[in-house]
């Protein structure tokens, strides 16, 4: 059994719950054991580092410091120094903190001063921070993944979407390429899917621009979805909770904004791995996505159970109901027609 320390990150417990569920479902088939870091906290996402460096790095490094406590063999399960982050933003932040604390000793000192308040300490370079797909492709290996496939995804036309945070700046030289990495392509191919070359695989999904500049985000999402559609893809596959949320949750709004009618579901690669390994869609969080993958998956013989459909988008020009009118007859209610 291969043991790793898991830093799940906040998204995995909320918007990307499906990612967490599907990841947990496939671990067993691949003989992997993830031990969650105890008492981990938010990595600060993409924003905090832009506001105040030392507290932001301290916030990140606290997780690394906690992880070092779990490095040593406990009860004979074998030790590890590898921290797995399934979320690209978390991965980038953890890797970044480790890298810069090592490169700039003065930063390391300040961060450790902050950590010392909680009785913690982190020596840069102690841990290996890696993303989930890195573990799957390079530790588990495509061969083993191929062996675990019982239901090949033959005929499922997918575009692999790596997102921008994973392959760059690549402090430890883990990826095949910075501009056009092929790890996700290779993995999906191992599952039997029909992988379409996707030139936008490392383009930005808009990140948090959906909150502060939706027009910009919509254009970025439109490019991704339009190109996938033009290439005949039935589905986008991603490794990043942020990418998944933006393309999924804002696709409808983007369609409204541009007057287009795209319908490209986006799933996590772990969900497709689960399907290929013969797991049930329900165990993999499939069906909760907003742009439904039901029809696409039906094409490869996967039936997605009916869950509560999300509320239909509100018609734009429908007015809001007026407050009840005041009447002399108390107790009687009347609404304006």
């Amino acid at each position: 059994m291969n043991k790793y320390l898991l830093y799940p990150g906040c998204s995995m417990e909320s918007s990307a719950k499906a990612y967490m569920e599907s990841m947990n479902t496939i671990l067993e088939s691949l003989d992997l054991h993830f031990e969650e870091i105890e008492d981990w906290n938010c990595c600060g996402a993409t924003e905090y580092l832009g506001i105040n460096l030392i507290p932001a790095y301290s916030l990140i490094a606290r997780n690394l410091a906690l992880a070092t406590k779990q490095m040593h063999p406990v009860n004979g399960t074998g030790g590890t120094r590898t921290v797995v982050a399934p979320c690209s933003a978390c991965y980038l932040n953890l890797a970044k903190a480790d890298h810069y604390m090592n490169e700039r000793p003065s930063l390391g000192e300040k961060v450790n001063e902050a950590l010392a308040a909680g009785g913690l300490h982190y020596e840069a370079g102690t841990l290996d921070v890696r993303h989930l797909i890195d573990i799957l492709v390079y530790d588990v290996g495509l061969e083993k993944i191929r062996e675990a496939v019982v239901h090949p995804l033959t005929g499922l036309k997918v575009v692999p979407y790596m997102g921008c945070m994973l392959p760059r700046p690549d402090y430890q030289h883990r990826w095949s390429d910075h501009e056009h990495p092929t790890e996700l392509d290779d993995l999906l191919r191992a599952l039997g899917a029909d992988v379409i070359d996707y030139p936008l695989t490392t383009e930005c999904c808009g990140g948090h621009m959906t909150q502060i500049g939706p027009e910009t985000a919509f254009e970025l999402i439109r490019r991704l979805v339009a190109d996938a559609d033009e290439r005949g893809a039935q589905m986008m596959v991603t490794v990043c909770p942020m990418c998944q949320m933006n393309v999924d949750a804002y696709q409808n709004e983007m369609n409204n904004y541009f007057g287009t009618d795209y319908h490209i579901p986006i799933l996590f690669f772990t969900q497709l791995m689960g399907l290929a390994f013969g797991k049930e869609p329900g165990e993999l969080g499939i069906g909760v996505e907003l742009v439904s993958s039901r029809n696409v998956l039906a094409g490869i013989g996967v039936e997605v159970p009916v869950t509560q459909e999300p509320a239909a988008p509100r018609k734009k020009d429908e007015g809001l109901p007026m407050p009840r009118r005041w009447t002399k007859h108390e107790g009687r209610k009347e609404t304006v027609k």
């Binding site: 501009e179 030139p199 936008l200 490019r223 190109d227 033009e230």
Partner: peptide, 8 residues
């Protein structure tokens, strides 16, 4: 910056 076939 890049050569691409992703038409915009």
């Amino acid at each position: 910056a890049e050569v691409t076939d992703a038409a915009r």
